[in-house]
Nucleic acid binder design. Structure first.
Lengths: 203, 203
DNA sequence: GTCTATATACAGATAGAC
DNA sequence: GTCTATCTGTATATAGAC
């Protein structure tokens, strides 16, 4: 790995652990084993490095989600694969945490990949759910868009609860819960769906 | 409001906006209209002030939740009142955001009120759900504990999605979604509940 | 109680030698 | 490309006068 790469990886880790505000250039350099001059030769400064780090993390996250969501199996199975893949639950979501970082949200360039990643993820899930519905795997009354949002919200909230409790248990619990809900919306063979309202997993 | 109070309020705001890591003593003083010496006379330093601020915020949050959850109405109605109360959605959750703050989570004294608030909230919701079930308002198969966790996760995830999108719409959407789910678990009059698994809102 | 002075370290770079 | 100054400002206090 060359120096720019090590600097980006170092920045990614620190961004995940401490956020943009809690990360100093010095810490980036030390973790990367690079000098001051080296860092400023390859990058214009902290925002530039953060941009490279965030976009790389976002790209990886998309690639992973895409792999799991486009694998074999029913819609529900693929979503289960995605939600249950191995995660560093107690470290939190490397993209979701940036949402709380005032300096990231204040900078349009840094903010954009965060916003786009969430939009993309919701859209992917929506696509999988819509496909499941078309194939007759899922209840025709289920709304793909709001269900997708709810799944992402449960995921992000699961991280928060896990960190608050310093335990992965709440994360596992809510993920199991949302998957159970999805299972409850499997189309009953031979019966066109009943159910009420127009909301998310319930609609 | 006396000087210590103004300092605590100032700290609460900064903690909410910028987090512990992003908040300096100088900023606290300026916002409170207090001098350096004054701040260090009343508080031993940044951690001491943060502790006062966090516990105050936690206390207020509990009082508000308790008021809404113990009001009149069915279990579902009270939870709807709680979830739909006015919130500064785009500012995020003042307690939940601390979960991402490395220096808060590393300090047991600062961490405890965060952990306890989430535990308390889940327990309150669990109580309301259990009561609703006892009264026959909710499906007997619904699990109060995991449903409570899911509700809190959706709430916290809703904040994340809202901040990512810079819009309150995703928050409203997921809150409506989870309330719709709860409505779908209203005990059907005269029919003992069907449904599958043992998970959260679905169980 | 509040103010001003002082202090050490770090943040976040820039400049120029090698 | 990398290293070593150098620089301005802030972080986070402590000390002592008033």
């Amino acid at each position: 790995m060359d120096t720019p790469d090590r600097l980006i990886e170092s920045t990614r880790e620190l961004l995940w652990e401490r956020g943009y505000v809690g990360m100093s250039p010095k810490a980036i350099q030390q973790r990367a084993g690079a000098g001051q001059g080296s860092m400023y030769h390859h990058f214009s400064g902290k925002p530039d490095l953060a941009f490279a780090a965030i976009t790389r993390t976002a790209t990886e996250l998309r690639a992973a989600a895409e792999a799991q969501l486009s694998g074999p199996g029913t819609a529900t199975e693929r979503i289960a694969t995605y939600l249950r893949r191995e995660r560093d639950v107690l470290r939190g979501c490397p993209i979701g945490r940036l949402t709380q970082d005032p300096d990231v949200m204040a900078d349009p360039a840094l903010r954009r990949p965060v916003e786009e990643t969430f939009a993309w993820l919701q859209d992917q899930l929506k696509g999988v759910l819509a496909e499941g519905r078309r194939r007759g795997e899922l209840d025709a009354a289920l709304d793909p868009a709001s269900t997708a949002s709810t799944i992402v919200a449960v995921l992000q909230g699961g991280y928060v609860l896990a960190r608050a409790a310093n335990s992965t248990a709440p994360f596992t619990q809510v993920v199991d819960g949302v998957l159970g809900l999805l299972a409850a919306h499997a189309a009953s063979p031979g019966s066109s769906s009943p159910t009420q309202g127009a909301h998310g997993l319930c609609s």
